[in-house]
Nucleic acid binder design. Sequence first.
DNA 1: CCACTAACCTGTAGGC
DNA 2: TGCCTACAGGTTAGTG
Length: 291
Amino acid sequence: MPELPEVETVRAGLAPYVEGARIQKVTLNRKDLRFPFGPDFVSELEGQTILRAARRAKYLLFPLSSGKTLLSHLGMTGSYRFVEFTYKDPSRYYEPPPGEKHDHVIFDLHHPALGDLHLIYADARRFGFMELFAHEEDSPYLKGLGPEPFGNAFNPAQLAARLKGRKSPIKTMLLDQRVVAGIGNIYASEVLHRAHIRPDCPSGALVDKPGRLDDLVFGVREVLAEAVEAGGSTLKDFRNAEGGSGYFQHHFAVYDREGEPCPTPLCTGTIHRIVQSGRSSFFCPVCQKGA
DNA sequence: CCACTAACCTGTAGGC
DNA sequence: TGCCTACAGGTTAGTG
């Protein structure tokens, strides 16, 4: 499900509800997601107040009042949603929610203005994971991440340094989170179409060609910004935290459009599909060129 | 260091 | 309807 635009949409949806909320209780319905939860995961969360909902690359980050930060990656199918709980006063014992099959983590929150909130993390494939860290440099997941696409550190010169001499196809390099953070399989294809670059172009060959990396940087920023604006993409079941779906999928130029005409104005091409590193790439062989 | 593959796990779509 | 295969938005571990 989630590349940068989807994760950013989730973050924005969660923020008004979780920022300032106190974590009253955490329930783990299993001992692991992709990785086991840390031994003190629950005890380090309970009693803490969530200060902010932030994002780095495809990671959600929740700095806590204790000084530690909760990191959450959605994998392919992770999602957050709020559910109503039924309290049976006066004991304040509550009925657990109906419960979907893949509800793995339940956060009982208390927000000073909004009252009791119950946030559920569900993840069918369990490629997602969570961890707590004290300092960013302690997290193996954040270490080595490339620049944020919207930051100044992502620019043609930085890209040139990373791609120089590399033979790997540019599509593969865009998926490498050490090169630039947040792009996944959908937006890699979309970005390259926007920049008029073939996905199988050897990365290093783009470095010496004037303007090609400028086009690429521009394409990355433009496509991701449009997707964030659209609330991300909903392919199967992506929902933001408030239950709504994104609609950027209607704007896909090439992704999953094999055989359709290329949407570039005046272009007569047809969208092709190739497999790179075991994953589908979509492109127009007419308006997308190598170096 | 680089390039590539397999693996993790479940659901779904499509063919027969 | 059922069975089978292929594939899915991500990342890591392991191999040359």
